[in-house]
Structures are given as structure tokens and as C-alpha cells.
Design a protein around this nucleic acid. Structure first.
Length: 878
RNA sequence: GCCCGGGUGGCGAAAUGGUAAACGCGGGCGACUUAAAAUCGCCUGGCUUCGGCCGUGCAGGUUCGAGUCCUGCCCCGGGCACCA
């Protein structure tokens, strides 16, 4: 039996864990490297074959860095609060703690069998009392610094989930999870003042080694824009309307004002004749959620209030309207409308026949539409003739002099709605006193733990699960003995993931969230790897908390994650057809349709033949049949060809491949090598079951370098001592050089291809020498650690190959005596020449020109120019 | 609509402005075998009058030389979407 992963893998996994081979230790003598995976939410589904791509990549890097002499922190844990466990509890009555524990055990089992070199002694679970305590402690710090406050805010209430959702969790007016409708309601909620950090969250992005598109997404989410606030006096009153504009230079072109329907001045501005129309409009707008309103980019609607304001630059009367294209939550909730130079204002003005006054000449025609390009000011008194940028500066100075406005900055980012009406989350460590004030639970009373509950069903009437436990809600203030009420809300799932990377530095600490020594040594995270779906939310929230802890003196670096990488998604092949059993009635035997007989229009699919509505169905990937051309067929019907679709793995599409089955068949090492070899870390690709055997064969060949077959048995080869022949030394050196370079660039895919070349060629002419064998195993250990460890121990080593020293090589071996150059004539490759490595350009040129093939193409013409690229090629231009 | 990515053999993919397709899958041929599997070796972009010619989504440009840089367009994936 040549290479049998099942015989060796669990043995090494157990040994690594029992001996704590990969413990992370603070070692002042060594440089540190903190490589972190985004910790998973342990869902009931378990891992599919795509999840470990990031984990396997970080593991290869962690192992590489250890071999390079770094003290490596490579931990794993569980982001275990969250909605699914609670929803499961509602359905089955199983306590979320039970479900969570079960799922964690399954995840841990799956990760362990991949041979990942985590320091499992540092495992954290965000639902553990000892973790919750410090999450609540950080909340206390936010509260003490005035960054956590309660406010009556219009929230996104989702009746189906029975909870409020953050703006970020609402997509197109529906909940991100489950796509249930969401409505706007005012409720008292905990808010975190993330807006106070907006500027720093932007500025500090500069120093981070993150993918540019992720930085950009954060920038756009924060949405900084520079402009001015301008006060428009209200006609017939002492009041004024303050507007925010990014184009103060167009102030002379402001021909009307628009208030958001929720603006506090709406009632005051409205005249009697207009009141009924205004009230109706305001009421209509209130019924729509903000997302619905902003998503609707159709025709502009609005109502005139009957009131007027005065344009401060020219004292002209401008009518005041309300319209829902103005958002109450951005800027001042009011705008000055400049229809000539803003398309939305132009659409509105055109519809309601409001004058359009051009105040910027930029070559455009304002009768056709708004002209938004910069240009030169016109019809603008003292601004006339100034280019847009100068006009802005000038008018801002004027506004400030006159006390009529000022330059200012606005952000799209809002404060973070931080409470949820759920059970399975961290309780707020606060007490509401009878006088209406709120104070923190004293530190020595933390953690505030969840009360036991046996019914998790949301009541649907804005009551939270916790309010059903009066004996928990009702308590006393330990300082005064006065009655107090606990908060009925819990924190969102983000709370635990906002600081887990700090807990990993010192996870067993009972007296602090982490010690200053551990934080000093390990932070920041040098490499953070996880899904691009966290580009804004998790990464923005975690940066915010980290900055608060920085300001409070608990951490020494401004940013938590130095380098960020997003693994590409591994896709699965799914197989689709359609049927007309729209109600999923099991009693019906539906008509089946292949995709080719179905017409798709938007969300609707109809049978091409009769126009009946049909519904997509998927055949599980193991149940398809292939005809002789390789076309997938329905399991029972030869006439139904299945459409092959490459998409995200999910249970409902029947295209999930579990790592368990891959490991059982090919072993963890082959699964790891294939995952890495498929392509670059950040690129996604479909998982092809046909690809793994190739990687398995590579491991088998590696194994055969060390073992020889004698009839039925096999025995370890005796490896000659030393470095071997010149060719072997050169190949070994080139492999080390190449693999090192690839690992520094985080390209394990090409590193593995170099090891494949090594295995193919190293023992071609002479037996594998000892030195080459050891260098190879140390490198191989990054990708196929079990096999490397096994062979390493067979060579007589007692320590782990994962703790050896990265191999070195002699640079001189990479320089050969002669080199092969390509010769081009007019840029086309015509010949190949062999020249001494140290030949100078003239000598190379002479050899090239003398070449027969070159002569034929030069056709006796005199070269006009000869370019010699040392070590590469010669190009002769005639 | 706007902003990011990406488009290279039958497939996954390589390639500091310098010989396009390394490595792997699949396919073909051969060796070993009674045979098959496994293994090993060789071949594998298209066309060709066997001189070559054409080939990195399309059309141009810069350059001695472009997959790589620039301009315009097409397609696919992702993000944002009335933010004044």
C-alpha cells in the first residue's frame, strides 16, 4: 500500500493537539506574526468544501512564518450568538445554548481533521460568560465615554422576525436574513456614536494594506462630502431654514427650497390652503421605509407648503416645498434646490414648473437637463467669472462674514443602532432607575447573564423575550438598594466580533479582557483573512471599537488589521429544471420542463409551449445521470436535460460538497493541496471533484521518493548523505528560492507547482539525497503537513517538521554557465541561442547575428537597431 | 445609472513591458501486464502549401517589443443607488 492518508492523519492531528505543538508564545527574542481567520458563526449546516479555503491558506502562511522564525499567533473561535440558533429554539424548543454547543463541536471536528495548526488552547466562544463579561466591559467603556446613548429613533421594525434591524441589515426594504418586509417605527434604542469617529475611520485607511476596493467601499459607506450650511430666513418670521449643499457656488441659482417630509419646520411653513395636501403627503411618506423611498428613483413627487424663504445672497423670495427625495437623516434634512445644476432638482422643477436659473457656464444646455460639470460662475453678482472651485471658496468666506452660513462636512454614516429585541445575545450591563436615569452595572457584578427561558417565540407586539422574565428585569441598584430595571434588549451579533482578535491575545485572562503585555506583543493582526461580505459592517464596527479602546489607552495601535485578504468563493455545480407544481404539493405529479423549454422574464418563469408559470427545481449533484455526450439528465426522465449552473454552494441547490467526504476519500492533505493549488487566494472557482486526484497523485509521488516497493512490501529508501549531484543541488536551490518567493507573495498555488516539478525531477538520474529530502519536507509541511510530518519522523527526526528551520540555499547555484536567449527579428521570435552567462551585449549580439535562422530572416539587410535584454532575448530591427 | 473587480487552451490556471499557455485536470499514443487497473514515458492552442501564418473579449494607440501600459466599446461578477 503506497500512500494511505487515513493511516497517518488522525495520528498526527492528535499528537499536535496533545503536545500543543503549535502553541503561541510571547517570545521577545522573536518577531511576531498574528494571522487570523474571520471566526465563523457555527451554523447547523456544518462546513462545505468552500469554507476552508481561507483557513487552509492562513494555515499555510502560519506554518511558513513559524519556519521562518516568527512567533506565530494563529487562533480559532466561534461567533456564536445569533439569530439562527434562536429561530431554531422557537421552532423546536431546544435552548440556543444546546444548539450552539452542538454546532461548535461539529465545526471543531471538521476543522481539526484538516490539520490546521491552530493553538486550540486559545479557542474563544462569544457566548461564554467569561467572554460576555468583557464584551459588557467594553460597552461600559463606550457608555462612560458618552459613545453609547439611548434615543427614540425611527427604526426598521421587522414584524416577521419580531425585531428591529440595523440599516445595514435591511436591503431594499426587506430583512437581509429571510427577506421579510420591514417598516419604520419610532422606538427607544441603544445607539453608538460611530459618527464621531467618521473622520478617523476614513483617514486611517491610508496606512492599511487592504484591497483597494474594500477601502473604497468603506469610504463610500462613510460618505464624506464637503459643502456648506446656508441659512435661509423664513419670510414673515424670525426663523430660518438651514440647508446643506455641496455647491454653495450655485446659491444664486437656488429657486426653491425642499424640506424632508419629517422636517420640524414643515408645520410652521405650511399655510392654511395647503395644509390638507401637506398633511396627506407627510402621512404617505411616513408609511414608506427610508429604503423604499430612496430605492424608488421614479418620478419626483412633492407638495408646496405655501410658505416662502429668502435667498440670503440676493434677497429673492423662494417657495418652500416638501418632497420625499430629501432625506431627513442626511445633512440638515433640507436643501436649496438649484434646478439648473442638479438633475434631481431639474426633474422636480420641470414637473412643477418652477423657474430654472443658470448660474454656471460649463458649455451645457440647461433647457435639456441639469449641467453638473464645474465651469465659470454667471448671473451670480460678485461670483461672476470665477471658476467653480474659486467660487466655492469665495462664497463660503462671504457666508461666514455675513453670519449666514459656513463651510462644513456631511457624512452618510449614521450612528449605529445597537440594540436588538432578541434573547440570544449579550444583555446590556445597565440599570434603569426610577428617576429615569440609566447607570452601569458595577464592574464586579459583571457579567450580566441571560435568564433561563423556555419559550423563545417573539410576541410580535414590541415586547422582547427578556421582558417575559419580570424577576430578572426587576432588580436593585447594588449601590443604593433602590429598585431598578434591567434593559430588555440584547446586543447585536456584531458585539462579540468587534474585539475577539484582542481576546485571542490573552484568552484565559480572568482579571482583564487582555493583558497589556499580550496586547503589546501580538497586536495588530498582521494578516486578516475573511469574506468580502464583511467589507463594511464587521470591519467598520471592529475598527470603531478598536479606536475607542485606543483612546481609552487599552490598546497601543490605532488600527486592528494591518493586511486584509478576501478569499474567493468556491462555487458548486447545480443542476436545474422546472415544473409546474407551484404550491409544492406532494400529491401532484407535475409536468417537468428542461430549461430550454422555459422562458425567463425577470422573476417569472413560464413554459415556452403553453405560457404556464413554472418553478425552478434542482437535482442533487449525486443524483444526476450523464448521457453519452456528458449531458446531465433527470434521475427518472431521459427527456429532461438538466441545465448546469455554477453558483454558491447551498443546501437548497443540492450542490454542496462536504469536506468530510473529500477527506474520507483522499485525505486532508490532498484536500488542502487542491484547495491551494486551484488558483490564487482571492479568486473564486467551482470545486471540481476531478481535480483532487491529481493532487493526491502528487502526494503519492512524494511518498514514493522515500519508499520503495519490494514485491508486496515497501521499505524506506536509504538516502545518500549530502546534497547530491550538481543538477540535484541546482534543482533544490531553485525550488527553495521559488517557493520562498511565492510564499512571501502569498501565492501558494505557484509554490505547490514548484514542488511538483521538484518531485518529478529530483530523483530522475540519481537517488534523492538527504539534504534535498529534508528541505523538501520542510516546505511540503506548509501544504501537506501530515505526510511531511510522517516522512520527517521516518527520517529519524523527533521534533515536528512544523517547527524546523526554513531551508537555505547557495545563490551561486542559481547562476548557470550558459544561458538560452530567444532571438527576435522585428519583434518576432526566430531563433534560440546558447551564450555564456557572462557574455557582454556585443558578444551576444554577434552570436545572434551569426545564427542561421536569424540570417534567413534578416535577409542580408543591415540591422537598424539591436536590443539586448540581458538574460532574456535579443531583438534585431531591420 | 455610478463605482470597483474580471475576461488567456476542452477545463483550473501561469507569465518583473521581453520566448504566451509553467503546474495540474481531461484527452491521445507508447512501455510494463495474458489482460485490465495502477504506475512510468512522450504528445496535446488553431490553421498550414511544412516556409510559415494566426492566436490572451472587440476596435484602435504607445513601444524595437503589449496578456501586461493608454483610449473607446462589449460581456460576466460584485458593490452602491434621489446622500443635495
Amino acid at each position: 500500500m503506497p500512500y494511505d492518508p487515513t493511516a497517518i492523519e488522525t495520528r498526527w492531528q492528535d499528537k499536535w493537539i496533545s503536545e500543543r505543538t503549535f502553541r503561541a508564545e510571547i517570545d521577545p527574542e522573536k518577531p511576531k506574526y498574528y494571522v487570523l481567520d474571520m471566526f465563523p458563526y457555527p451554523s447547523g449546516e456544518g462546513l462545505h468544501v468552500g469554507h476552508p479555503k481561507g483557513y487552509i491558506s492562513t494555515d499555510a502562511i502560519a506554518r511558513y512564518k513559524r519556519l521562518r522564525g516568527f512567533s506565530v499567533l494563529h487562533p480559532m473561535g466561534w461567533d456564536a450568538f445569533g439569530l439562527p440558533a434562536e429561530q431554531y429554539a422557537v421552532k423546536t424548543g431546544t435552548h440556543p445554548r444546546i444548539t450552539t454547543e452542538r454546532n461548535i463541536n461539529n465545526y471543531r471536528r471538521q476543522l481539526k481533521q484538516l490539520g490546521l495548526s491552530y493553538d486550540w488552547h486559545r479557542e474563544v466562544d462569544t457566548t461564554e460568560p467569561d467572554y460576555v463579561k468583557w464584551t459588557q466591559w467594553i460597552f461600559s467603556k463606550l457608555f462612560e465615554r458618552g459613545l453609547a446613548y439611548e434615543a427614540e429613533v425611527p427604526v426598521n421594525w421587522c414584524p416577521a422576525l419580531g425585531t428591529v434591524l440595523a440599516n445595514e441589515e435591511v436591503i431594499d426594504g426587506k430583512s437581509e436574513r429571510g427577506s421579510h418586509p420591514v417598516v419604520r417605527m419610532p422606538m427607544k434604542q441603544w445607539m453608538l456614536r460611530i459618527t464621531e469617529y467618521a473622520e478617523r475611520l476614513i483617514d486611517d485607511l491610508d496606512d492599511l494594506d487592504w484591497p483597494e476596493h474594500i477601502k473604497r467601499m468603506q469610504l463610500e459607506w462613510i460618505g464624506r462630502s464637503e459643502g456648506a450650511r446656508v441659512a435661509f430666513p423664513i419670510e414673515g418670521s424670525d426663523g430660518e431654514i438651514e440647508v446643506f449643499t455641496t455647491r454653495p457656488d450655485t446659491l444664486f441659482g437656488a429657486t426653491y427650497i425642499v424640506l424632508a417630509p419629517e422636517h420640524p419646520l414643515v408645520a410652521e411653513m405650511t399655510t392654511e390652503p395647503q395644509r390638507a395636501a401637506v398633511d396627506a403627503y407627510v402621512e404617505g411618506a411616513a408609511r414608506k421605509s427610508e429604503r423604499v423611498r430612496t430605492a424608488d428613483t421614479g418620478e419626483k413627487t412633492g407638495v408646496f407648503t405655501g410658505g416662502f424663504a429668502i435667498n440670503p445672497v440676493n434677497d429673492e423670495r423662494v417657495p418652500v416645498w416638501i418632497a420625499d427625495y430629501v432625506l431627513s437623516t442626511y445633512g440638515t434634512g433640507a436643501i436649496m434646490a438649484v434646478p439648473a445644476h442638479d438633475q434631481r432638482d431639474w426633474d422636480f422643477a420641470t414637473r412643477f414648473e418652477i423657474p430654472i436659473v443658470q448660474v454656471v457656464d460649463n458649455g451645457g444646455d440647461v433647457s435639456e437637463g441639469a449641467t453638473t460639470q464645474p465651469g465659470v460662475a454667471m448671473n451670480s453678482a460678485f461670483l461672476d467669472g470665477l471658476p467653480t472651485a474659486e467660487a466655492k471658496t469665495r462664497i463660503n468666506a462671504w457666508l461666514e462674514e455675513q453670519g449666514k452660513g459656513e463651510a462644513t462636512v456631511s457624512y452618510k454614516l449614521r450612528d449605529w443602532l445597537f440594540s436588538r429585541q432578541r434573547y440570544w445575545g449579550e444583555p446590556f450591563p445597565v440599570l434603569h432607575l426610577e428617576d429615569g436615569t440609566t447607570k452601569l452595572v458595577p464592574h464586579d457584578e459583571l457579567p450580566v447573564l441571560l435568564p433561563e427561558l423556555d419559550d423563545w417565540t417573539p410576541s410580535g407586539d414590541f415586547e422582547t423575550p427578556l421582558s417575559r422574565v419580570p424577576e430578572w428585569i426587576q432588580t436593585t441598584d447594588p449601590a443604593t438598594g433602590a429598585p431598578a430595571r434591567r434593559d430588555r434588549n440584547t446586543m447585536p451579533q456584531w458585539a462579540g466580533s468587534c474585539w475577539y482578535f484582542l481576546r485571542f491575545c490573552d484568552p484565559l485572562n480572568h482579571d482583564a479582557a487582555f493583558s497589556p503585555e499580550a496586547e503589546q506583543y501580538w497586536m495588530p493582526v498582521d494578516l486578516y483573512v475573511g469574506g468580502a461580505e464583511h467589507a463594511v459592517l464587521h470591519l467598520l464596527y471592529a475598527r470603531f471599537w478598536h479606536k475607542v479602546l485606543y483612546d481609552a489607552g487599552f490598546v497601543h495601535c490605532k488600527e486592528p488589521f494591518q493586511k486584509l485578504l478576501n478569499p474567493g468563493m468556491i462555487l458548486g455545480y447545480s443542476y436545474r429544471y422546472y415544473d409546474d407544481n407551484l404550491e409544492d404539493d406532494p400529491a401532484v405529479s407535475p409536468n417537468l420542463y428542461p430549461s430550454s423549454a422555459v422562458r425567463i422574464e425577470g422573476e417569472r418563469a413560464t413554459a415556452a409551449a403553453n405560457g404556464d408559470e413554472v418553478k425552478a427545481r434542482w437535482v442533487h449533484h449525486t443524483e444526476i445521470r450523464l448521457d453519452e455526450d456528458g449531458t446531465a439528465l433527470h434521475p427518472d426522465r431521459d427527456d429532461i436535460m438538466l441545465e448546469e449552473v455554477t453558483e454558491k454552494m447551498s443546501k437548497s441547490r443540492g450542490n454542496v460538497i462536504s469536506p468530510d467526504e473529500m477527506i474520507e476519500e483522499f485525505g486532508a492533505d490532498a484536500m488542502r493541496v487542491y484547495t491551494l493549488f486551484m488558483g490564487p487566494l482571492d479568486k473564486g472557482a467551482p470545486w471540481s471533484t476531478e481535480g483532487i486526484p491529481g493532487c493526491f497523485r502528487f502526494l503519492q509521488r512524494s511518498h514514493r521518493l522515500f519508499y520503495e516497493q519490494n514485491g508486496e512490501t515497501e521499505s524506506l529508501r536509504t538516502l545518500p548523505a549530502g546534497a547530491g549531484t550538481d543538477d540535484q543541488q541546482r534543482l533544490t536551490a531553485a525550488t527553495i528560492a521559488g517557493v520562498t518567493e511565492d510564499m512571501e507573495a502569498i501565492q501558494p498555488n505557484t509554490a505547490i507547482s514548484k514542488l511538483m516539478v521538484f518531485v518529478r525531477d529530483i530523483a530522475k538520474d540519481s537517488p534523492l539525497p538527504q539534504d534535498a529530502a529534508e528541505a523538501f519536507l520542510i516546505m511540503l509541511g506548509c501544504y501537506a503537513p501530515h505526510l511531511a510530518e510522517e516522512l520527517w519522523s521516518q527520517l529519524g527526526h523527533t521534533g515536528s517538521v512544523g517547527l524546523a528551520a526554513w531551508p537555505t540555499y547557495d545563490e551561486a547555484l542559481l547562476v548557470s554557465e550558459t544561458i538560452t536567449l530567444a532571438v527576435q527579428v522585428n519583434g518576432k521570435r526566430r531563433a534560440e541561442i546558447e551564450v555564456p552567462a557572462d557574455a557582454d551585449n556585443d558578444a551576444v549580439q554577434a552570436i545572434a547575428l551569426a545564427d542561421e535562422g536569424v540570417q534567413r530572416h534578416v535577409e542580408g539587410k543591415a540591422p537598424r537597431k539591436v536590443i539586448v535584454v540581458p538574460g532574456r532575448l535579443v531583438n534585431i530591427v531591420v
